[in-house]
Computed example of a mutant assay.
Amino acid sequence: MRHDSTSPARRNPFSLLKQSLLALALAGLAGAALAATPAVKTQPGYYRFSLGKFEITALSDGTLSLEPLKLLSGRTPELITQDLDAAHIKQPVDTSMNAYLINTGSKLVLIDTGGAATMGPNGNQLLQSLKNAGYAPAQIDEIYLTHLHGDHVGGLVSNGERNFPNAIVRADKADAAFWLDEATANAAPEGSKPFFKLAMDAINPYAKAGKFKPFETNAELVPGIRSVAQHGHTPGHNSYLVESEQQKLEVIGDMIHVGAVQFPHPEVVIGFDSDSKQAAADRRKAFDAAAKDGHLIAAAHLSFPGLGYINAEGTGYRWVPVNYALAK
């Protein structure tokens, strides 16, 4: 049975005349009310579209702040600043945290969960975005994690309790073996230990409930969704290839963080990469394929909704955001 989101509200039965009179009566009040209303950080949190027979919903968990001059390497700070200035991006960079819900008709599959309260004051929006999109956490059947960094797994839990009580959580065995291993965590540099704690705090409640099921590399997880190993960013980082009726979407996780720099200069790496050389090679391979094939890309850290296409340009690439359209 297909999972359906909340249906639109019915039209108000007022006559056109009554609506017009009401609008005129309220017009004078509206300007004063708007002027007195303080600015808030509420933003649209979902964007829905169709991929073949699948329904895809991009979900925002908000934004986090990154300092590219401290994190990026392979390009001088002066040139990085020039790249950002040319794109009208201020530093530090407000970086989106995006997740993606796939309704296959028989399963609701969520890819990544954002960072919840672990990633600063502008995050922790995923559950509200999911609700606004017409779904409840208890409806989610499976959750596929691109990797176990905190800004992708933090939304799994609140106060140690599972946010998605009926979901099976899945990740690459290599990532689980690394981030959930106590000995590896204890031997890690002090600056890296919080990464292990965030992963363990998020995954352990599901593991204890028998709902964490790691998978082998390059696995078909449900019909139409399979993992694609790209183990440079973390030891078990994956993209997910979603296909329906010959239409394709690749959810690429952390293959890119600062698009204004890394698209034209894909050799630039970030300090979060476990193996920076492999991460750069993964990016080249995936972006070459996307440019050649023309399939849609969904990226965790490109400006929400993080959807677009990759074109080859010079020695690098150009990002082409999707044209906005109401879901059909």
Rank of each mutant, 00 (worst) to 15 (best):
N103Y: 07
L17K: 14
L64R: 14
L110G: 05
G120P: 07
L29K: 13
I140N: 05
S274W: 04
T315F: 09
E250G: 01
G306W: 04
A207N: 06
L72G: 03
R11G: 12
I143H: 00
A136N: 07
H152L: 08
D254A: 08
N98L: 07
R48K: 12
G308S: 03
P214V: 07
G31Q: 13
L21V: 13
E216S: 15
S158H: 03
Y100N: 06
A25C: 10
L69W: 01
P68V: 02
G314D: 14
V40E: 10
A86N: 11
G120D: 10
N132E: 11
A260P: 05
P305D: 07
T42P: 00
R283W: 05
L79S: 10
I80Q: 12
A33R: 14
F164C: 09
I111V: 15
A291H: 00
G160T: 01
P214D: 09
I80K: 03
V320D: 04
S158Q: 08
Q247R: 10
D61A: 05
H295G: 09
A289D: 07
G123N: 06
N238K: 01
K53W: 06
G160L: 10
S129V: 06
G114M: 10
A298Y: 00
L22C: 02
K131F: 07
T118D: 12
